[in-house]
Design a protein around this nucleic acid. Structure first.
Lengths: 133, 133
DNA sequence: TATATTTGCTTCAATTATTGAAGTAAAGTT
DNA sequence: AACTTTACTTCAATAATTGAAGCAAATATA
């Protein structure tokens, strides 16, 4: 008897019901950039996510089918998190956040991010293809 | 002495610091679709936002320069909310949420939204131009 | 003109979410 | 055998959200 978590039948609203918070898309970002990551790797990203939050966001992402969790081939205590197709399809959302942030918050954005943004403005499609592969 | 609200210099993270929640982008959605709205109009959208939340999200959106609040020309107790350029530039983010939601949550999405999604898949660019104008 | 209604909020108590620090168990390293 | 690492969990304090109620000014209605 899983209750309905969706506030309406609007796809924007339903998407936000799943990942409309301050952490979930940052985890997706790290997985997009790195391909795969461990708990520790995700934990060390610069925004300082509390480990309790990281743990429950990973569970939610797994439950919604956006990531998989698999055993490390040689180290039994490490798990590897990876985006599924569904998770990779969040790349366009993230790309648009990068564009909005660069256009509207440029004084707060690092040089590294600005460089990436230039590539994006130059050829969004190939950046997307590269990220999602 | 306004303290820094941004967790890092990543534009994704900073964007989420501003509108990474379950309500803000729904207000932007309604303003995009309707062009302009009153408090009442926004309050009546189908997700049932609490009026206290609507009030503070409107303040935040105004503070971040994404919307304007102006007096109604003939009715002194009504205010009209409108997107600024900065606010309109959130349209691509919203469009990508629509696409992701339709692709990945289609069983929860209304027929009306599916029709709009078809238009989007057909010609995203002109839908965007229409929304942002 | 008096009364009722509408609009755009604010207030507040209860519930829920988040933080940040500490702890734990199993596995790996020295 | 002792120490460290990894992937978490636990928990108390703080912050955010909900949902209902209230309120003042403006407007509509009788």
């Amino acid at each position: 008897m899983s209750e309905n978590i969706f506030r309406s039948t609007c796809p924007i609203s339903s998407s936000l019901d799943l990942f409309g918070d301050k952490w979930t898309l940052l985890i997706v970002r790290d997985l997009l950039y790195h391909g795969s990551r461990t708990f520790k790797g995700l934990f060390q990203s610069e925004e300082n996510i509390p480990s309790s939050r990281l743990a429950d966001r990973l569970k939610k992402l797994e439950n919604m089918g956006a990531i998989t969790k698999e055993k490390h081939p040689s180290n039994k205590k490490v798990f590897i998190y990876r985006l599924t197709q569904k998770g990779k399809e969040l790349a366009p959302v993230i790309i648009e956040l990068i564009i909005w942030g660069n256009k509207n918050l440029s004084e707060h954005v690092s040089e590294e991010s600005k460089t990436f943004y230039q590539k994006l403005e130059n050829d969004k499609e190939s950046v997307l293809i590269e990220l999602m592969k």
